[in-house]
Design a protein around this nucleic acid. Structure first.
Length: 597
RNA sequence: GAUUCCAUAGCUCAGCUGGAUAGAGCAACGGUUUUCUAAACCGUAGGCCUUUGGUUCGAAUCCAAAUGGGAUCACCA
């Protein structure tokens, strides 16, 4: 059992035994660095029941713990703070018993809950940009974390492949494309289609400006511009299954999918299932009928259907237009129900930006009101926007940071830095390319994941992403150092893994070594917290602290100069375990670690 | 206007389920290489934790208000 839990339970017992009072739970914290101890109990809360001075109360509890818990070595009291010292032997036993065991359990428990994680969900009218990068990295990492925490995870992608915005690219290509294809232009498919999306907007804007100069209002001009009428006509034809429109749609979407596939591969994300809106956009209508029958939904005089959420502090939400067609919300109701029927999930997590907070609040509330019990398991993983120094990115205005460009730039920077540091020696071209990819993408991923998902983040394209300090390359570098140590150990006949060598861990270990062991011990706590909060940032901070701590240790403590063979082996084993922890943590973030750099 | 999220070093961020003197990285300045790879390590400097009030033995952390910033408030997705 976890030492923290043991201490908490014993403290509750102590309070019961000393003051005959039952306390539900007690909070322990890590002892501040300036004091001796591992865990601290703040006793101010117990003064009412002890009716004694803080110091005396702390001493009484401390004595009880020391006598009744074999793991407690000692304690000291400063004012109302009871600092508890755990025996070195406890940490050493933990270390020895966990050596060379995986940090992440590779098998799932028998009745692992099913969690669906929806992320990415791109539009097929333009290439991925920085905002999508955050979404993809976050969704993938959360899926990895939940998997490691013992859930059966289904990663899913809902591709928005239809609608008026797709028609814009299609129409523009038809008019001005001159038959251009990815092959003929040398452009990646998604970029080619995105080019025509921008093209449409350019022409459309000039038409609107023309109409406005003739005295029309903004709204009128936007409605009457011929291009607007043309895409609306195109959308109607699409919905009617018009052969020409559908063929064009299929052709251009295929280009986009090929492009996305390349971006996803570069980014290292994947999906277990992919849904297309062209297949799901009609879902949800039967649910509307049920809702009407049960009275949860109402019909207006003009035949449109809505739900009244004003009693819940929200508005009236329309679910079917007067002409009977469905809206975004209708579709999301339908897909949620469909997913539950297909996967019987315990939880469904939507990785979607915080600009849709309201939408999901309404969606979940409607499903609850309609009586779906599983709606309690729905969660909106809401993350902040990625902003540029000049503000929000706008694809139509070209102020976007393109995902493919950014990734390539990161790889290039990694290559340049590696060469500059003279670390390419003995690397084959293929290995070098792999290394640049690992470092460059690692830096990018860590940069985005170390920030709390809920917070908006600032990205300044003119300042390159760091490779020093609190970054993935720093963490990777420490992993690499450890691998180099282990190689050297092999050459010197120190077989770290050989079970036949019994290592007598020295009685007294360095404070830094104990600290490192405690950090290893806390891996599971970090994993659990990250899973509970859906926050890769917790893992990122954990692994950075571990790597930083190790870096100091590595610097201050030469290993092979040591005379005692046991001590050398212990330090090698400690280093190896830290390497394992780094690798496992980075895997949770979707970041690879190289063997050399 | 309504709702909602946010505000910590020059910059980017931790810390927030109340606890001891608020931590990192970057940038700046200075140092460390006959050592297991310096993408490293050490040091200096940098803070009215936006403001005001409240709760408490104790507030960056909880509550309220103010100020500033973002988002949402479509029969768009």
């Amino acid at each position: 059992m976890n030492i923290e839990k043991k201490l908490q339970e014993k403290t509750i017992q102590a309070l019961q035994s000393l003051y005959a009072t039952t306390v539900e739970k007690v909070a322990l914290e890590k002892t501040n660095h300036d004091f001796k101890g591992d865990y601290t109990l703040v006793v101010f809360n117990f003064l009412k029941i002890s009716k004694k001075k803080p110091e005396d109360t702390a001493i009484e509890i401390g004595n009880y713990l020391k006598t009744n818990l074999p793991e407690v070595a000692d304690f000291n009291v400063v004012k109302g703070f009871l600092n508890i010292v755990v025996k070195d032997s406890f940490w050493l036993n933990y270390f020895q018993s966990s050596f060379n065991k995986p940090f992440i359990n590779p098998t799932l428990p028998e009745n692992a809950p099913t969690v669906m994680v929806e992320y990415s969900s791109p539009n097929t009218n333009k290439p991925l940009h920085l905002g999508h990068v955050r979404n993809n990295l976050l969704g993938f990492s959360v899926a990895e974390i939940l998997k490691a925490a013992g859930n059966h995870v289904v990663k899913t992608n809902l591709v928005n492949d239809r609608g008026i915005h797709i028609c814009k690219s299609m129409l523009a290509w038809q008019k001005w494309g001159g038959g251009e294809t990815p092959e003929s232009s040398g452009l990646k498919g998604d970029h080619l289609v995105g080019k025509y999306y921008v093209e449409f907007d350019k022409h459309y804007k000039s038409q609107v400006a023309d109409f406005k100069s003739k005295g029309l209002s903004d709204e009128e001009a936007e409605k009457q511009a011929p291009l607007m009428l043309e895409i609306q006509d195109m959308l109607r034809k699409w919905e009617a299954g018009d052969k020409v429109v559908r063929t064009l749609w299929e052709k251009m979407n295929a280009w986009v999918y090929k492009g996305f596939e390349a971006s996803y591969k570069m980014l290292g994300v994947s999906f277990d299932s992919t849904y297309y809106e062209s297949n799901t956009y009609l879902l949800g209508k039967n649910i509307i009928d049920e809702g009407l029958a049960s009275g949860v939904l109402k019909r207006r005089a003009d035949n449109s259907v809505y739900i009244d959420l004003t009693a819940d502090g929200l508005d009236e939400k329309t679910l079917l237009r007067a002409d009977g067609t469905s809206v975004y919300m209708t579709q999301d109701l339908g897909t949620a129900v469909q997913r539950f029927e297909q996967h019987k999930f315990n939880k469904l997590i939507y990785t979607v930006g915080n600009e849709q907070d309201y939408h999901f609040k309404v969606l979940f509330l409607i499903l609850k009101k309609m009586g779906y019990k599983w709606a309690d398991g729905l969660f909106h993983l809401s993350y902040g926007m990625v902003e540029l120094p000049e503000g929000k990115m706008k694809s139509r205005e070209g102020t976007v940071v393109d995902a493919d460009d950014l990734m390539q730039e990161m790889v290039n920077t990694a290559a340049a830095t590696t060469k500059e540091l003279g670390k390419t020696e003995g690397l084959s071209d293929a290995d070098a390319d792999k290394l640049y990819h690992t470092i460059g993408l690692g830096a990018l991923k860590y940069f985005m994941l170390k920030i709390d998902p809920k917070k908006k983040m600032l990205f300044n394209p003119s300042e390159s992403i760091d490779f020093n300090g609190n970054t993935a390359p720093f963490i990777q570098f420490n992993y690499v150092r450890i691998q180099a140590l282990l190689r050297k150990a092999n050459e010197n006949n120190f077989n770290v893994l050989n079970e036949s060598i019994t290592v007598n861990i020295p009685e007294v270990i360095l404070p830094k070594e104990k600290e490192l062991i405690i950090r290893l011990y806390n891996f599971n706590t970090a994993l659990k917290q990250a899973a509970d909060e859906y926050s890769p940032a917790i893992i990122a901070n954990y692994v950075y602290d571990l790597a930083k701590e190790y870096s100091q240790y590595y610097h201050d403590t030469p290993i092979f100069k040591e005379e005692s063979k046991d001590l050398i082996l212990f330090r090698l084993q400690l280093s190896k375990t830290i390497g394992d922890a780094i690798k496992s943590s980075m895997k949770l973030l979707g970041i690879e670690v190289p063997e050399r750099m």
